[in-house]
Each structure stands twice: as structure tokens, then as C-alpha cells.
Design a protein around this nucleic acid. Structure first.
Lengths: 216, 216, 216, 216
DNA sequence: AATGAATGAGAATTCATTCAT
DNA sequence: TATGAATGAATTCTCATTCAT
């Protein structure tokens, strides 16, 4: 079904390289980061990267596999919960996305960049598979809410997903502008993260409740 | 206030370079594009780029100035219109953004990428200025709606802007995935653009109406 | 007919690079020579090689085109001469080969090496074309001699060509062994070249006369 | 006299490495083959090569020792045969060379390449020793034939050796061209080998008989 | 005895920019 | 004003070899 997401057992040095690459790719972009930069920051020999991953491109793919393979069941488990109302589940999905983006900011910055270009096949396959799966799950959830009469009938799930992911990823990638524009420059980083996470969660929950229940 | 947005008078060759650079930067990223690629595709001498713009970085800045300077008064004029209700104005703002992103896809792909990184000062200043101004204008509009009682009181304008821009830019940058996931691969490009533009506009108008008027 | 042998107009620097590369490839082999070696010896910047030829491989092809394209009509003109007997023409062909190998020793050393491997397409096409054409010309000449009754009937031209080229190229490539084995180490280089050229010419003429006229 | 030709007792793994190296060196050249290529193809650890042979260069020397040491007495035994006429012996020498080259094609391709360069001392000493010895033996044989009056007086043995070895080695190294030029591309490999071996043997025997017995 | 891990050196090539004209 | 030529620096990757185990 998704042969390219192979769970790999990375050793400490490989993990160190992956994590360092993640930080640098996030900040400088893939092409803007040299393998030497990564090696230097990770404290390993330059040749190690080719040795372990084959190439810079393959390192990016390894990073994708590593991050994507980490979370596959959470959304499923949210949906299966029979105790929750569809709206409660929607709120959980929102928190899942807010959490994921918030705790993997570097990776998602890379994702945002990579999604723009369609020419990197190795990664775009992984992204595509991941997006498709999640959209299908949310579609199920919306149908569930429509059946119970909680949600209105004409919800455009693909665009709702676009709003969800777009809002979260845009905030994550432009948070430094958000700080400046909203005069939050002096707030300590940790506090700022908590602050926007909370606000973003509330905002999206409100937007989604309004959208899903508002009569056309 | 914004010294770097200088309206420049570009000659034909300069414009050709800027437009070619825009296409390539959009697809390959800034670092992923070489000046030689640009020069070749634009049909000019490599030295022209340094000659005209000073450097590759400066070319990017010129591109930003060029695109941003082009539209400064539209939002203002929407707001000033005394004939329209606040909700009508919101819808106009939405269409303005949808239009802008749709007709300047390449540029906005670059913007999305560039926003991620905070290290490129030349462009981030322009982006910051642009975002700040637009957010302030929308804030005015929301206040106007709140005064008239059309909008509810606790609207988070910065996050609403995030949702607006995030949704539009996410769709623009991931439209190839959107096509595939929603089985629209065979639709001709032009028709597809019309299709998503219309859908996106309706979707956002509905979301905004619901959000701005929904009682908490 | 032979599209890959394009006559190129090389400038002085390009010629310098080609000639230096020829010397080094002859002595160290293609893979055994680095572009840096060539650049250093030729007194040019390393980047020049990529700049002018695109790649190391393409430089080799340029060298082949350069050397091969130089001599296309000589054999034809020998054959056309109506004043000479077939045997005289054979002797002229022999001298042509001896001369060619002798005055382009470096290039022919490269040819000998390159012929071994069939994996370098760019050059093997040129070699193949060149060998085919020359063999066809010699075949004509032998037929001519057979018609006049000068040569015997069962001459195997492909193998005769193998003997001709094999003998000359083997001597060229192993001349340092020849010197040592035959106690000619003290002979000055120039004199040695003259010496073996003369001896080789006589030897081959004798072998060919014997072979072509000897009754089975 | 020839200290480097030491008969070495290679174990299975060492032999596997040597044989694999032989194939790769023949096709790709010494510099064009990496120890990793050899190790991978031979199915052994990369470190094995340094471990067993010391270095890549030493592996080449081991290969030479291995192949050269294998055949030292055959030529001697041919000469000693008192039953055969000088011409019969010459024919046997020819078959010996044709056989040797034919059954050790890979090795002889390497030899051809290595002979070109004089800079690899380890191997050139072995080659030199080998050539010198064989030439001396053939010189004896020719003298024998001259004494009996079978061969004419002015035979140039060094150049006759050059013709013998040059012809055989040229055919071995350029057989793929030979196939194409003579429209034998569809002949199965095994059959082709038999075919050229037979033709080459007959050709050389005829050339040698003619040359050795032809009156000047 | 054998090997997976590791590495410094060097490989070819591309880069943005400069310079002479 | 415009450009072909040129280049030093940096790019990714491969190399043969060594080392700890």
C-alpha cells in the first residue's frame, strides 16, 4: 500500500544526522543546506552522510520516512471512539494537527517547502500518501456527523482539510511575523508557543463548529 | 516606513529576467535555481543578472518589490466603499486574496517558501510590512462589522487572517496533490484553475460568514 | 553518416587542454587522470575544463573528434592513385599507419586502452566508424590486387588489418619494453623513434608482401 | 632474477577476489574499478582486499603473479621437442599464444592496458621479464630454422614477436568491433570464440610461413 | 581471522560573480 | 551598455584505507 514508508532502525549517529538535517532544512531549505553544514553541526564526518544515507536526497527521504512513519494510528483511534460526538471528535482532530505541527515544527516547515515543488519524487509520494489517508479519515468523520444531523449537508471536506492544515501550517511557518505584528516579541519562546497553541486550537474549534453547524 | 519597496522602472530585459526567475524560484526554490538556469531560460547573458541586479539575492528582492508594489491600493479601496455591508466587504477581501494568489501563483509559491525562513532579511522585511498593513486593514473592517452588530465580538483577527491566507496559499501550493486526491487529474489545467477558484471562494465565504456571525 | 565526428574549432586554450589531456590519458589512462592534473599541467583553471567541454568524458570525446577528423582523406587518395601497383599502394598504406601511430603516439595509446572497454559509448562509436571505413578501403585495395593477379585469392582482409594495426599499435604501446629487451636503452629518443619506424615499416612491408603473394 | 613472481598459495576467498578483480579490471580498467566494486561483486567485505593483499595495487600484482606463474614451461617444452620441424614448432608457438590469449581474455585485456603505461613498476617488471624470456625462446627457434635452411636469414625476431602478440592481442581487445564490422553480431558467443580462434590461428600460420620462408 | 564503521583526501562538477573589452 | 571568458570557492560524492573489535 505504501512501500516507500519503510520503518528503519536508525542508530544514534544516523538519528543525530537526521535531526540536524531537519533543523537546517527547515531554516535554510533543502538546496540551501549543504551536507557539510549538516555534518559540521552534527559533529560527524562529511562522508558519513553519503555512507549512511547514500546521498543528500536520500537523507531527506529518510527524514520523511522517519517522521511520517512515527504517527499512523492516532487519527484512526480518534475516529473509532464510540463515546464521543462527531464535534468532539473534530475537536480532537484539530488538537491532533495543532499538536503535531507544534511539536514537529522543523519537519513541517520542510513539508511546507517540499509540497510547493512537485519535482522531488522521493518525498512527494510520501506526502501524497499521507495527505490522502488523512483526508479519507476526516471524510468518514464528517459523514458520521452528517448522518447524526450534527453537521450540515454541504461540507466540502477537501477544502475543509485545506483550511485546517493551511491555517496551522501557515501559523507555524510565519510565527516570527505573528510575533512582531502582534507585539509579542518580548514573550519568552516557550510561553509564546503555549500561547499560540492555545489560541490556534480555540480559533480552529470555533471556525469548525461554526462552519459545520452553520445553516447555509 | 518601507524604504525597500522602491518602485523601479524595469526595462524589457530586466522584466524578462524577473519573470523567468519567478517561475524557476517557484518550482525549484531560490537555492535550487542557479543564475545560469535563469539566464538560459530568459535568453540573456549570465552576466546580465549581476549587471542589472547586483546579485542573485538582489534579484529576488527586485522580484518582491515588483510584485508587492503592484498592489497597494486595492484593499484600501474596498474598505472605503461606503455602499457595501461589512460582510460584503469581507467577501470582497476574500475574492481579492483568492484572485491574487490565483493569478500570481508562482510568486506566492516563492512567498510561502521564503516566509518559512527568517534569515533572508531583504525579503522578510517586505513580507513583514505587507502582512502588517493588510492585517491592520482587515482589523478595521472587522471592527466596523462589530460596531454595526453584523459580526460577533470575540473575533481573533490575526488568526482569521492566518486562516484566510493559510487556506488560500496551502491550496495554491498543493494543488497538484489536490488534483490527484480528488480525482481531477484529467481536467484541463485552465478548467481546473477556474474550478478551484470558484470552490475556494465559496468555501471561504461560507467559513467566514459562519465564523463572523456564529454565536459563541 | 558519422554525425558524432563534428569538426570543432578549438581555440588556443582548448587546444592546450586537449593536448595536455592527451599526454596524461596516454600515460595514466582516462580514469587514472584527474581533471585537476590536466588543468595544472595545462596551466588553466580546473573549472575551465567543465566550462569548455562540459565534462571529463566530453573532453575525451573532443580529443577523439579532434584527432580522428584530422585525417579522413589520406587513405582515399592513396587508393585512387592509378599510377601505382597494388603492392606499392599496400606499402603506402603501411607507411600511412606507421606514420600515423608514430606521430600520434599519445593518442594511439589512448585508443588502444579505449578499444578494450566497450562501455564508453561516446568514443567507441567514433572508433567503430573509423575502423570500418579503413577496413573497407583496404578491402578494395586487396580486391584490386587480386584482380590484377598480384595478390593471391584467399586473403583475409579483416585479419590482415588486425595484423597491421595490431603490430603497429603493439610496438607503439610497448616500445619501452622493446628498448630494454633489445638493448637500445642508451639510444637517444629521437634516434630510437627513427630506428623503429624504419624497421617497422620494412618489417611490415616484407610480411605483407610475403603474405599477399605467397602461394598457399 | 624475477623475485616478484612468487608462487602464492591463495585461499578460496583470495582467489574469488582475484578473479573478480580480473573481470572488472579488464572491462573498466584498473583506475576505473573501485575496491568496493570488486568486494561487492565478489561478495566479500571491502576491508578484505586491504587485509589480504595490502592494497589495490598489490592486488593487481597478485593477479599478475597468479596468471603469469601459471605458465612457464610450455614454450620450453615446445622447443625441446626434437621430433618436430622448426615450422611445426612455430605453428605450435602460434597456437600457444592464440590459446593463451583466448582462454585468458580478461587478463590479457589488463596486460594490454598496463603495457601502455610504464609508471606501474610492480607489474611492468613482471611483464618485462615475461616478454624477454619468450622472445629469447622464439629467437632460439628461429635460429634453429635458419640453421636447417627452413627459414630465411634476415628475420627480425623482435618485430615478428610484435606481430604475433600484436595481432592476437589486438583481436582479443577489439573483438566486439570485429563482430560488428564483419556482420557476426548474431553469432552466439561461444561459436564466435571458436570461429575467430580457428581463423586467427590459420591466418597467423600462413603469415608466419610466408614471412619465414619467403625469399627477400 | 575477519569485518562493520569510519574517515581524510580527493574526485568531478557547479556556483555566483568579476573582469576585460 | 553589454557580454563572453574566466575563476575561486564551494558543491556532492567516492575513494582506498584504517581501526576497534
Amino acid at each position: 500500500m505504501c512501500p516507500q514508508i519503510i520503518f528503519m532502525d536508525f542508530n544514534d549517529k544516523q538519528l543525530k544526522i537526521i535531526e540536524t538535517a531537519e533543523e537546517l532544512f527547515a531554516e535554510m531549505g533543502f538546496s540551501g543546506t549543504s551536507v557539510r553544514d549538516i555534518a559540521d553541526k552534527a559533529g560527524v564526518n562529511v562522508a558519513m552522510i553519503s555512507y549512511y544515507f547514500g546521498s543528500k536526497e536520500k537523507l531527506l527521504e529518510a527524514l520523511f520516512s522517519f517522521r511520517v512513519s512515527a504517527s499512523t494510528q492516532i487519527l484512526e483511534s480518534i475516529l473509532k471512539d464510540t463515546q464521543k460526538t462527531p464535534l468532539e471528535k473534530v475537536n480532537m482532530v484539530i488538537d491532533y494537527y495543532v499538536d503535531r505541527f507544534n511539536s514537529n515544527q522543523c519537519f513541517h516547515k520542510i513539508m511546507v517547502r517540499e509540497q510547493v515543488a512537485s519535482h522531488r519524487i522521493g518525498t512527494s509520494d510520501i506526502i501524497h500518501h499521507y495527505k490522502k489517508r488523512n483526508q479519507d479519515l476526516v471524510k468518514q468523520l464528517v459523514h458520521e456527523g452528517q448522518k447524526t444531523g450534527d453537521f450540515n449537508k454541504h461540507v466540502d471536506v477537501p477544502l475543509l482539510m485545506t483550511t485546517l492544515i493551511g491555517t496551522v501550517s501557515h501559523l507555524v511557518t510565519t510565527q516570527h511575523y505573528y510575533r512582531v505584528i502582534n507585539n509579542l516579541e518580548d514573550m519568552p519562546e516557550e510561553q509564546f508557543q503555549k500561547h499560540i497553541k492555545k489560541k490556534l486550537s480555540n480559533h480552529l474549534k470555533f471556525v469548525f463548529k461554526a462552519t459545520l453547524t452553520h445553516e447555509a
